[in-house]
Design a protein around this nucleic acid. Structure first.
Lengths: 176, 176
DNA sequence: TGACTCATGTAAGGCGTTACATGATTTT
DNA sequence: AAAATCATGTAACGCCTTACATGAGTCA
């Protein structure tokens, strides 16, 4: 699968949860998938046009009262399942903070410490957000999507906790 | 700082460790920074041309016996330190595996399990690699860059361990 | 000699964001 | 009425990889 298809997977997947406008699709992606996914209008609207021309989504309503909504078709659901099962190529990572730390000799000890302290603070803040989401999620136990939301949430929590442990270790290493 | 500058930081930083050809710069980036950074020739050579025209790097030798080398100039070292200290914008993440798990209801339980088991295997393999690198690094204790290499290595280890913990948790969640 | 590695570069194209333009609907 | 939000779209641009073209040096 090309990376092109990834946006279509995200869009089609979003619409599989409930029919939405392109606008609220983006809001939903930011709010719900924000810690591991991002899409911009420049991707979403062309993707919706493509998906519509392939018959995988359909417009309901004509923007009369509160904008139009796109809904997934049955062909779209079949295509979504097929795309989800296909292998994917991991995007090559580029971590600007680690790049700076690697050249830490030139950045200096204080600069490195600042980077690490900031990263630790970010991770702590993210953990607070995740705790809030987890509390909200406890209400909707019978939603079949909740389990999977919890799994991706746990990924964010694990990653943030790893940052806490790592920054502590790195700060100790820095002073040695 | 624009993201454009990131390649120049990586290139200039690499040359601050030792003079190299564009070719070996890429080899070095893959081997040493591979778990958190990537560059392709299509980025490296234009970056070297830019840096040369700004007087931040200089060619030594004319490709006589074994290719030319680029070395950082004193102006380049000053610029590198300035760039390292500037704030950076984190690249928005796109994790294709988490996207698939989020829509796990349509992927099915077996598909999800396969994703998680694969991710766990990848993390285990990475931890073995990191252990090898750590053993090799134990020899070069007096190199001033080693400490910073260890810090970025620890980041990779922490992230991989987090994946192990998370996949175990997620596999249990999946069967509940 | 033939194969392989080292080395430099470019062109095409996919990926992705930002900023802008436009207008309807809703809220204050 | 003014301001904010909802909504759709596009154009320009930056980022980044892949594939190709080219040639020198090394090694079997």
């Amino acid at each position: 699968v090309k990376r092109t298809a990834q946006t279509q997977v995200a869009v089609l997947g979003g619409l599989s949860i409930e029919p939405m406008s392109g606008y609220s699709l983006r809001q939903g992606i930011i709010e719900t998938l924000g810690h591991f996914w991002s899409e911009s209008y420049g991707q979403i609207y062309p993707a919706l046009t493509d998906l519509e021309s392939k018959g995988l989504v359909r417009r309901q309503g004509q923007g009369r009262t509160s904008g139009s909504r796109f809904e997934i078709t049955s062909a779209g659901l079949i295509q979504l399942k097929a795309w989800l099962a296909e292998p994917f190529e991991p995007v090559p990572q580029r971590n600007a903070m680690l790049l700076r730390l690697f050249f830490g000799r030139h950045l200096g000890q204080d600069g490195c410490r600042r980077l690490l302290v900031d990263a630790r603070g970010d991770a702590e803040r993210r953990l607070v957000e995740y705790a809030t989401i987890r509390a909200e999620l406890a209400a909707a136990t019978n939603d079949p999507d909740t389990k999977f939301f919890l799994i991706t949430l746990a990924a964010g929590e694990a990653a943030s906790k790893a940052v806490l442990a790592w920054t502590d270790e790195a700060l100790a290493l820095l002073d040695s």
